[in-house]
Design a protein around this nucleic acid. Sequence first.
DNA 1: GTCTATACGGTGATAGAC
DNA 2: GTCTATCACCGTATAGAC
Lengths: 201, 201
Amino acid sequence: MQEEVTTEQRILEAAEDVFMHEGFAGARMQQIADKAGINKAMLHYYFRSKDKLFELILQYKMRQFLPQITAALRDDSLTFFDKLDRFIMAYLGMLRKNTRLPLFIISAINRNPELMASFNLKVGREIAEMMQQEIKKGHISPVHPQQFVLTLIGMCIFPFLARPIFRSVFELSNDDYDHLIAERHLHVMQYARAILKTARE
Amino acid sequence: MQEEVTTEQRILEAAEDVFMHEGFAGARMQQIADKAGINKAMLHYYFRSKDKLFELILQYKMRQFLPQITAALRDDSLTFFDKLDRFIMAYLGMLRKNTRLPLFIISAINRNPELMASFNLKVGREIAEMMQQEIKKGHISPVHPQQFVLTLIGMCIFPFLARPIFRSVFELSNDDYDHLIAERHLHVMQYARAILKTARE
DNA sequence: GTCTATACGGTGATAGAC
DNA sequence: GTCTATCACCGTATAGAC
């Protein structure tokens, strides 16, 4: 039960910050060392290389947000649409607290797709499987599950990727765009319903 | 009327290739020089610095695809929904020929938002304005234009950003995923219609 | 564990001969 | 225009004293 924050922890926090802002190629070990208040030698003492450190941060960030998101889908007392709403709320809420996460993860995986091997992102498959059941029951229209999941996740994530572009296109201030994002869940929920309930109910 | 390709052109093509694959921070001037069949000194002779060269490539790529896309919206003989369909077809068709473009541009603008200043991406605003007119006329339901445009563009772009992630999640081969993308326009058109025609017609 | 010092290669960029 | 040689600097990584 130590009172002070360990050096290892300070390094991890600094590395998270730098990697999230600069990406892997743009990040500098010197910058991480400075932010952690130590010298570069210590980085290599605690974490052998830049690659290892980056992989740790990536795994940490991926596993950090997954539980909150998937929890929404596991409550079997809820209807499919209620689960969907909870999922959208949880997802967008998490993203609003981690606005740089999407570009960080997408860049990392595109740079080195093998990194996906260590993750088991079943949340997408879970939604797709739920949809197939709901389609069988006739609760929703027969939408292509994978295409819909791609759309659903994209509706949540894309605003965080395209922020500077859309701010410029629509000439929005930072506050304006924050407001757009704060209301995003209402629109995503509505759009998802519209897609799934086409010519039904 | 020169018969041979100029050195400048060879450099630009090499730079485009390297920057598109590696991003700015990951790209190496040496790699560009090698690919162009010249040495590093020539790069600086033709284009003063890495920054200038990158900016040129970014501008070239942004301006290259815009005309094809916007053309779809300009044909006033078409109805709004037909324009939308053409836009989706043109956009997805262009992306299938430039699969790395989305991550390239999004990374570039997120790294340096000031770069947006040199572009006038009115296509988003044009769609939003068309929507407002259609809403007034009662042709579509009163959807928030900016939220919808964000969704529409995201539905087109996101599959190209999330390719390695979704391939892993759904355990798809490269061919499987290509097939998903080849059919994407049908689903996007259908989803857009569902959103815009909620409880109407 | 923490530091200083340093190795070694690669970086973008420039000078100057041809 | 094109090349070689070289610059000053920074990158990651390591060795060794304390």
